[in-house]
Write a protein that binds this DNA or RNA. Structure first.
Ligand SMILES: [Mn+2]
Ligand SMILES: [Mn+2]
Ligand SMILES: [Zn+2]
Ligand SMILES: [Zn+2]
Lengths: 151, 151
DNA sequence: TGCTCCATTGATAACTGTTATCGAACGCGA
DNA sequence: TCGCGTTCGATAACAGTTATCAATGGAGCA
């Protein structure tokens, strides 16, 4: 959670410009401000919080523009979505500890039995003050149906 | 993903009844049908899909009843929500592989450096047809601020 | 069994997060 | 500088979820 230096920010914005050119994306003012905000905001910001930040520099910007650009960035690998299954609540009654495989394409969630993995080992302790209740490994990739070449 | 036997279902529904009594929850017809559907549906159903299932047995049931009961079940540990951060899109520019700690209380997401963990080891291969792109470990528990006794 | 009370239900309005639509504005190559 | 296709802002529409509230119905008790 260390602060990112201004030099690093500029370097990443410059790389961003190159990647936009590469991908045939127009370099709009909005686009750049949004990306810069993204890099400068530490953590895992929501569209709403990014909007709040960007609005300070472009008061007239639309929330829809933020959404559209975030989607564009994600599609082009310029940023990443933290959770692939944030769309709707999902529940399960399988109370046994187990892991999940999430398909990046169809977003389906598959159970992975716990025994398939060797226990996760911590080399050091978690940061001070954090109390652990459980953990599970989330695998991401293509599921059987989505990986087929015929798709 | 093996099919659950009818005997097991009944056993779990019976346990459900006991736990409801224990928790001071009324044993309503809707409640039991919803729970039974939940146990019988394999995978990670959404409220909408549960509603669809339950509606076949109680055509007049309201979607709100399904939501309310799912929340009640989760609050009492009768079922589990698969993802703690399904509420809204979250993005990050931290492209280095890393893990996450999600606070069960405030839902904040914290980065955990990759080096804190020994590499995850697969004892066997993933199920046939699944292609892995990445994985990360999700820790759940209380963060520093939420774990404080003064809260 | 019948009565009372409070939890729960169903209907629906309201709210939040997200996407679609569309005319205006703008970036970019010619 | 011009012209075209992209992107923008405003806003309607949509999806998922929660709040509201009157009606219903479990659960304990007479
Ligand atoms: Mn699962
Ligand atoms: Mn992260
Ligand atoms: Zn898939
Ligand atoms: Zn917390």
């Amino acid at each position: 959670m260390e602060q990112i230096s201004q030099v690093d920010v500029e370097a990443r914005v410059e790389r961003f410009r190159q990647e936009c050119r590469h991908a045939g994306l127009s370099l709009t003012h909005q686009r750049e401000i949004i990306f810069r905000a993204l890099v400068e905001m530490h953590g895992h910001p929501s569209p709403e919080s990014i909007y709040g930040e960007v609005k300070r520099q472009i008061p007239a910007i639309s929330l829809a523009t933020v959404y559209k650009n975030l989607k564009t960035f994600i599609d082009h690998g310029l940023t990443r979505e933290v959770s692939l299954h944030h769309g709707a609540l999902r529940v399960e009654t399988n109370s046994a500890p187990h892991h999940h495989f999430v398909c990046v394409r169809c977003k389906e969630i598959f159970d992975i039995e716990e025994e398939l993995l060797a226990p996760v080992e911590l080399r050091r302790k978690l940061p001070e003050g954090f109390s652990l209740q459980r953990y599970s490994v989330e695998f991401q990739g293509l599921c059987r149906s989505c990986g087929e070449p015929s798709s």
